[in-house]
Write a protein that binds this DNA or RNA. Structure first.
Lengths: 237, 237
DNA sequence: CTTGAAACTGACGTAGCGTCAGGGTCTAGC
DNA sequence: GCTAGACCCTGACGCTACGTCAGTTTCAAG
């Protein structure tokens, strides 16, 4: 008759979970109280609580209950699970961040929902996903986080300004191979580098996307024109 | 018998959705094809497609199907919906980012899952959430994104270094009010400012948390000692 | 008229519990 | 011993946004 131990309600209060949740974990076999009263009420002992806290801790990492079960039972190695989870979280964060960016963009349309803008955004990001795989998108997201929003805004503002100066140089008849031309090409390359961070995979994907969607990017996204690209590539030779 | 229009399969192919999804939207009343063949097959006209693309666009913003329905029916204002959605996405991103940080922290325990570390993390973030509300957590997250990870790492490394110099000053018998003492206090305030960004609400919450968990923070998180705090506050007077 | 592809309408499954519904159990006070 | 009130029990359905059969019917070409 050693009916010591906490009842569900008390465990719920201490752990911040609900009684229903504890029932759920019990049924799934995650945390089963090792004792019951004669009337069938659950009694949680110290070992049960320890297991419960392990489960809670793993859940805070965002693992599903199924994974948690596999980890506590030893069916999954911890290191591998953590690595998978990190990647999964990166992907989710990237997806949500893109949604947030789209919302911000739509909000700029001030009151009226600009469906055309929204569709352009959507088409754009779909195009984007054709050329960059999940890992690359996560990689880009990481770079953005490392660099910080201020620097990103600076770079985005720098592009039209640089493109204007390139246009001016072309109009003035500047030789691409001249010192001025090569300086412009250097700036151009530096801005590109801010995007792909020197990763050849990212750079190639970006270039392929550019090649295959040139006219659309030029007209709808005010990207660089063919003349500008020609000038820059001539200067880089 | 003007049975023109696209069938579900064709619409699915063009929109990137599945046939099942189109059935689902039809049943929910979101996008109901305005025509059917005599045999009952769905026929989507141009107006239906337009409505479908609006729905798809709104879904890409992360809105639930219910919200999408309310927006397209005009029951919800667009501006308000977008603002709510932005906040909701911020909260989700913040939650996932915290989970990711915890995973990274657990991974540093190298192979062996350090449950004690994990529990400390969890307890810490629970403590944190007692003192900062959802808006403030989002605000902090935004600040971190703006500043960039490099700067954050710099600041985190700067703390122990500064604390060491303060200790040295105390050991050398430096007066808090001396020029050297006030310089240290200035650096101290600048590092704090990096955290709260000058927001008085954030600063007060942080101070309250510090006050009420002083011993724990000092021992488990190698935070500043009482002696150091006394020196700094004396120097600031 | 046949045949293969495509479409139709249910209906169940998913993750992690919330939320009744319709009971028993525990315990303090009388 | 009895009862009231608080607590606990075990089902069972609900929610999101579809995926995935299953069994039947329609379409379009030969």
């Amino acid at each position: 008759m050693d009916e010591t131990g906490l009842r569900v309600g008390q465990v719920a209060e201490r752990s911040g979970l609900t009684v229903r949740t504890l029932h759920h974990y019990d049924r799934l076999g995650l945390v089963c109280p090792s004792d019951r009263t004669s009337g069938g009420h659950r009694l949680y002992g110290p070992a049960d609580l320890e297991r419960l806290y392990i489960v809670v801790g793993l859940r805070e990492l965002g693992l599903s209950l199924e994974r948690v079960g596999e980890v506590v039972s030893g069916a999954l190695t911890v290191a591998e699970t953590l690595e998978h989870q990190r990647v999964a979280l990166d992907l989710q964060i990237a997806a949500l961040t893109r949604a947030r960016d789209r919302v911000l963009h739509a909000q700029r349309a001030d009151g009226e929902l600009d469906l055309l803008e929204l569709m352009k955004e959507v088409v754009m990001s779909n195009t984007f996903e054709q050329y960059f795989d999940a890992d690359q998108i996560v990689q880009l997201q990481r770079r953005r986080a490392e660099i910080g929003e201020q620097r990103i805004a600076e770079v985005e503002n720098a592009w039209p300004e640089l493109m204007a100066r390139v246009d001016a140089a072309i109009a003035a008849g500047t030789e691409p191979q001249s010192e001025e031309g090569r300086a412009l090409a250097g700036e151009w390359a530096a801005l590109l580098e801010e995007f792909h961070g020197g990763d050849p995979g990212l750079r190639d994907s970006l270039f392929r996307m550019y090649e295959e969607n040139r006219s659309q990017i030029e007209t709808e996204w005010s990207g660089p024109s063919q003349r500008q690209l020609d000038f820059i590539s001539a200067a880089q030779r």
